[in-house]
Design a protein around this nucleic acid. Structure first.
Lengths: 127, 127
DNA sequence: CCGTATCCTAAAAGATACTG
DNA sequence: CAGTATCTTTTAGGATACGG
């Protein structure tokens, strides 16, 4: 399966750094897609195709990868309904729901920062 | 200088996605080092070498890159004191200080999740 | 002391084709 | 419908050497 170099400094640092609870947390929800997926599930279960359709730009591969990872880490519960055609849905776990107020605040902060950048013409370029 | 592909889907997605205030915010503080740097500055100014020495594993290159980026985005204020040897210190801006309660909560959440993983033996492996 | 420059590796993300 | 498998591209991160 997926090969992983365990001895690169990169890898070592990645592990080492999660001794800090803060960076540990950031790792759980970091990356381009995770929070985007989680917040779509804020109001209840969604199935694979619903998630895919609501998250613009995501490929099925990336969606699968992120879902699997978050399931493994206890953030998502995956339910397979034995029927044809198959139906699988995803929902937030308890510990994931505890993130909701946090990501709401982050969202507010993001909005505020964006506004600030626009108004004060902070030199943030587009990349 | 640093070449960037502007037309890769990767790049386009990265931009597109920041229309969401939440992912926008995550981008500002994401990555391995940013929050780690910010939280070191929670209690006041620090100079370059102090930051370097307090953040285990970081290279000068990475520290510089992250500092420059966060300065550009209005999260850090950089002050150069005209003296020999040179002295440069970094401090949080107002908007960055507004993140403090958020990262504190994230830190708590991280601690809790870590504990849960340990107790319930959630299948989170070591990478 | 506070960085830059150059080169390199590893990981993240994407394209495309295919399947139970 | 809900994914896998395979391969390629792009970016993040690191090693090392050097400079004002």
């Amino acid at each position: 399966m997926a090969k992983k170099k365990e001895n690169s400094t990169n890898s070592i640092n990645a592990q080492y750094i999660t001794e800090c609870d803060l960076t540990y947390a950031v790792c759980k929800i970091g990356g381009r897609w995770k929070l985007l997926i989680l917040c779509k599930l804020e109001n209840g279960k969604l199935r694979f195709s619903e998630l895919r359709d609501r998250i613009a730009g995501i490929t099925e591969r990336m969606l699968t990868l992120q879902l699997r990872e978050m399931e493994k880490e206890g953030l998502l519960k995956r339910t397979v309904h034995a029927q044809v055609p198959p139906r699988v849905d995803y929902e937030l776990t308890e510990i994931a729901r505890e993130l909701i107020p946090i990501w709401r605040q982050l969202e507010d902060w993001g909005k505020k920062h964006k506004k600030l950048v626009k108004e004060q013409v902070l030199e943030v370029d587009e990349n």
